[in-house]
Design a protein around this nucleic acid. Structure first.
Lengths: 251, 251
DNA sequence: CGGTGTGAAGTAGTTCACAGCC
DNA sequence: GGCTGTGAACTACTTCACACCG
């Protein structure tokens, strides 16, 4: 999964578990597909399969929202789409700004999945004056100087950061100062934000590293390559978890 | 957090909890930064702050890898960098292919964070013959026809899918058939794969939807807009979780 | 002392299995 | 008969708090 989060750990919003919230968009996507094919109802089993989870989990998840199904029948597709959309807050319009219009920022600006879910790209912002004017995804790129004005004029509360790592914290602070309270961070840095501001992090290289970990396991335990980095100083014993770390790197 | 995962739930790789694995790249990044500033040792407290977690969690995480710290002192930065890299399998070279060179694929191809961690982009693949030859990030884009040959010639075991949703499952199947066993999926679809293949999913719009959920809470419970979608038929009672769902949408 | 390493306690999330309703 | 909704059991993860060691 994409990863990281920074959350007030108390006040778990109105009793819906975080893990459930994270799956609602998945259900919503599956339901939307069914809706487009004019399927009137689904069972938890079918919907779970489409969303890639098991049916007990799905039923438990829905039970936090209310009793929206019909025993012996299943769930009404249109009705559930509406309920989940409302729960997620997608029945309203969310203006977002994207800061940092490099390759990734441009990809985000062009990404159709935003508009289709109540998210509206209110502005594209970049620090490079040379980009100003050049349209990306049919919108003009505006200069960072305008950031505060754009945020307040448009009532933006969600910001996307796709700048280089070095610029991210500073951009974050300006966004927050201007009134943004939710941030989606693509820059490979830990952002620090005041309480009350949510940060979600998407980190491409972290995802690959997690895959590499599992991939390595599949390949079987090969001998580790020689250990180039000695420890602080001579030590007596290093206990590896269960017997790797041959005899190479410590002592 | 980026999201989704598809894992053999048994065989939790050699006893390192999945949640810990997901944080190792974070620690590694923080350690690398310290290493570049030639800091010789860190305490769990300092490192935890840099990685954005609490120190108890960090110490527990490291305890799964082995006893790599020194009581009263902290952790040797270089040594830990090596241990975590090795644990994650980053001491070896991982050739990856990126399939689907649209905006996002191009962004990924240009992303520096891959190369710096043992990941090498072995090929860029796209279905559009018009793209063949046009270099992206200094590499030629190759046609999908070559996919199988590229995978086996380069011994690729990790594939990145950044195609449109409609093409993703088919691409996935070809990758798997050709020998790929780990997939990072950016397409907004649930991929189905045989056992033994890992899929991680990064979904931009899901992350925004999760933010919107929390954002909505902060704004306070406003009246929900009128409910445009009636349920299956007239019903007696709908119990919302604790008293929303005014009187509008059911019955 | 100071800071790691870790059992024990606490909390969150998942799965089971079945009562209850359509 | 079929399928939802949910307590109860279980598993995973986190946090506490302190023994132990450099």
């Amino acid at each position: 999964m994409a990863t990281g989060r920074t959350h007030r750990p108390a006040t778990r919003s109105r009793g819906i578990p975080e893990a459930t919230v994270a799956r609602l968009p998945l259900y919503l996507r599956a339901l939307t597909a069914l809706s487009e094919r004019s399927v009137p109802t689904v069972s938890s089993e079918e919907l779970a399969a489409a969303a890639g989870v098991n049916s007990a989990k799905l039923r438990k998840d829905f039970s936090y929202l209310g009793s929206y199904g019909t025993r012996g029948v299943g769930y009404d597709v249109e009705y559930l789409v509406y309920q989940i959309s409302r729960e997620l807050g997608l029945t309203q319009d969310w203006p977002v700004v994207i800061v940092g219009i490099g390759n990734l920022g441009a990809a985000l600006a062009n990404y159709g999945g935003f508009a289709s879910r109540g998210f509206r790209v209110a502005a594209l912002i970049d620090a490079d004056p040379a980009m100003a004017g050049t349209p990306v995804a049919g919108m003009p790129v505006q200069h960072t100087d305008e950031l505060e004005k754009i945020i307040s004029d448009n009532g933006v509360s969600i910001g996307v950061i796709s700048t280089p790592a070095g610029a991210a914290q500073q951009v974050c602070e300006r966004l927050v100062a201007a009134g943004v309270t939710s941030i989606l961070n693509f820059a490979p840095t830990v952002l620090s934000v005041p309480d009350g501001v949510d940060v979600r992090k998407v980190d491409l290289s972290i995802e690959l590293q997690i895959l590499a970990f599992h991939e390595q396991r599949k390949a079987g335990e090969d001998a580790a390559p020689e250990g180039p980095v000695p420890p602080v100083s001579a030590k007596q014993q290093r206990k590896g978890p269960d017997g790797d770390v041959p005899a190479v790197m410590p002592a």
